[in-house]
Design a protein around this nucleic acid. Structure first.
Lengths: 159, 159
DNA sequence: TGAAATTATATCAATTGGAATATATTTATG
DNA sequence: CATAAATATATTCCAATTGATATAATTTCA
């Protein structure tokens, strides 16, 4: 009769000899949840919503995007993006302009007020990123980011 | 007067010489979004909600968890987890049992029906993971997962 | 020109999050 | 040792966001 060692302490942080601890989608979701969650706490302390941050950060890259492009890059659905932009426009952080060439398109631009807010937040975001990656060498971090970028582009090719 | 080259094509998939394309939280969120989104499509084709999948998958690791542990591991808030478990219990996929030693705790167990469903889904999830990681060598994938695990544990230590 | 595709929005239901509450347990204090 | 304060756990309640489907407007193309 073999003596068996039962793995206890389920129900708390340990207990991870499990499916999810080796499941790539979970690892990505978990890392994403933790790293963004920390920054979202900083946002909340300032009374800025996550969706405001995410769409302003997206827009900071290229002003004058369509709703659809904002949705794709910002990882939101198109109808959700419309509503977020509605709110941002009401608060004066962005404005819509009709595309003259293709009148189906609404191009979104950051206002001066929105630019000031996002510049400030980009600084905070970079500082936060530097803090949480401080224990890695620049080479390690560059490698990780490169691997993630190739994973992303392969996943996009599938779809 | 220096000639300037303007980078155009903003508003579509290109246009990525930007903040977010080098921002680790975005890369993680993007990869997570894409990889999980693909599997969520499969779930929807079966009429299974994402929250059902996520909590059943969490439970598959260690039956008899508390709501709090389920919330932490499943990346949900505690009140949200209560509500999801309510729904799962109504559908007969899980059941609550009061912890005798500490009567504050509600322990959650998978039913036979829930076990059948999650076993099936775990198979699908593994197949999907295999498919999207097929172009990597096992070593590359092991490395990526190891890096993610260390990142996660460092982030957890901060908090 | 007419059909298909693209883009944005409106509408409605359902989920989620946050604050407050209730109950049980543990710790501290006189 | 008894009892009050602090902590842990789960739930309720309300507001707000999100998602899915359907619709409207414009453009493209066959």
């Amino acid at each position: 009769m073999p003596k068996t060692v039962v793995k206890e302490e389920v129900g708390d942080k340990a207990a991870d000899a499990s499916f999810i601890s080796d499941y790539l989608p979970y690892l990505l979701a978990h890392a994403s949840h933790l790293i963004s969650g920390q920054f979202h706490d900083q946002l909340r302390a300032r009374g800025i919503s996550v969706s405001t941050w995410r769409l302003l950060a997206t827009l900071s890259s290229g002003d004058g995007m369509t709703i659809g492009a904002l949705a794709r890059i910002g990882l939101y659905n198109q109808p959700t993006t419309t509503k977020i932009i509605d709110r941002l426009e009401e608060t004066g952080l962005v404005e819509r302009r009709q595309d003259e060439k293709d009148r189906r398109k609404a191009l979104v631009f950051i206002t001066a007020q929105g630019r000031a807010m996002v510049d400030d937040l980009l600084g905070e975001a970079k500082a936060h990123e530097a803090k949480v990656t401080a224990s890695y060498t620049p080479e390690e971090m560059a490698t990780l980011k490169r691997v993630l970028r190739t994973l992303i582009s392969r996943l996009e090719d599938d779809a």
